[in-house]
Write a protein that binds this DNA or RNA. Structure first.
Lengths: 200, 200
DNA sequence: GTTAGCATGTAAGGAGTTACATGATTTT
DNA sequence: AAAATCATGTAACTCCTTACATGCTAAC
């Protein structure tokens, strides 16, 4: 019946909190939130919006919608009071559900609307989740190292290094969160040296 | 009706080509193939095996199966002749379906059973797929740079760097594939210097 | 003797996709 | 005037997960 998804719902609520939007535009913004992989389709977005209306978390913004007679026009949605409440609840979550693979990206995309202490807990939870994974993969690799062909090994090695890289990234983010932010209040991303691009 | 999936089917056929296995063991090996994320559950594996038997691509290996009276025992499966044929067909595929996100990992996991020219085409296809993505992301970023908060920016930056890293990895793999492999025939993975770990 | 791991399977449902169906508006 | 992009929606289908149901075997 209802699409009580979680991530998509959260992303929609988060975006609508920034400003009222219609479905088509929402989808474009969602592409940015979810990244280039995992872009959502209208076949899931529109039903989701329908459900959110049905549960009273969002409502049509009549003023912003365009609907001439006979025209199909566009329907602009905005958060209701209950929607705002729900969003705050969701953004306050700092347990495992906030740092698993499916949800971490979305949660971080709305960190600007999230309390500093919750941000820190999520980043730390994510980090320890990845450290666990790193241990499992690397111990599995040392157990089976000799029996694997080079391609499987390359694949696992690359996977392991990706995890290690994400841990280092989280370390930097956590350090930045913890530091008293001596610099300017609103910040450009801390400049990290980007290694020179190899020309080809 | 039938699970004509692709990736799971392919992974099962590929593993059974190496040796006959029963479901439980198969699942453990699949976890290695698919990596720590995306582990498959019995709820998809057993129905998949059932379908593969129904389509005649695999069959019970009566000799290897264990089934005392009243016992539930285990059922060992092996490839049939048609299964081997199907596997060869699939491993010969070198179009886009072989290098998309969902399938590339599995395809590479069975590179040891894949022709050298097909391997090269897949690696190159994957690389150009990622290069496209890199262009899209980086141009989207330069368009919207100023309007994004630091967290969204960090997220996108990290995503971009991940793509760039995978491209560099593919470059190395492609170079290795192309080189006449002057070294020893069976190979340890080419030693790449691993940068010193930061202590914390 | 009880916990952990081995071993197989089904039913219900969740989360999404593709393909279809429709039409307006803007750009080339 | 054709092509691209804006804009909304549904129906059928796919792939997978969770929870359930069952029972053996090894280790502690």
């Amino acid at each position: 019946m209802s699409r009580k998804t979680g991530v998509l719902e959260l992303a929609v609520l988060g975006l609508l909190h920034e400003s009222p939007l219609h479905g088509y535009e929402l989808r474009k913004r969602l592409s940015a939130v979810f990244g280039p992989v995992k872009r959502i389709s209208y076949g899931s977005l529109y039903p989701c919006l329908k459900d959110l209306v049905a549960t009273g978390l969002i409502a049509e913004d009549a003023a912003a919608s365009v609907s001439g007679v006979g025209k199909r026009g566009r329907t602009v949605y905005k958060l209701t009071a209950e929607g705002k409440e729900r969003l705050q609840d969701q953004l306050g979550e700092h347990g495992p559900s906030a740092w698993e693979d499916e949800s971490f990206g979305v949660r971080m995309a709305f960190f600007a609307q999230t309390d500093a202490d919750v941000r820190l807990k999520i980043l730390e939870g994510r980090r320890s989740r990845l450290e666990e994974r790193r241990e499992k993969v690397s111990s599995a690799m040392s157990r089976t190292r000799e029996k694997l062909d080079r391609y499987t090994l390359e694949l696992q090695q690359h996977g392991l290094e990706s995890v290690e890289r994400e841990v280092r990234w989280l370390n930097e983010l956590i350090a930045t969160e913890r530091s008293p932010a001596g610099g300017p209040g609103r910040g450009a991303v801390t400049a990290r040296p980007r290694s020179a691009k190899s020309p080809g």
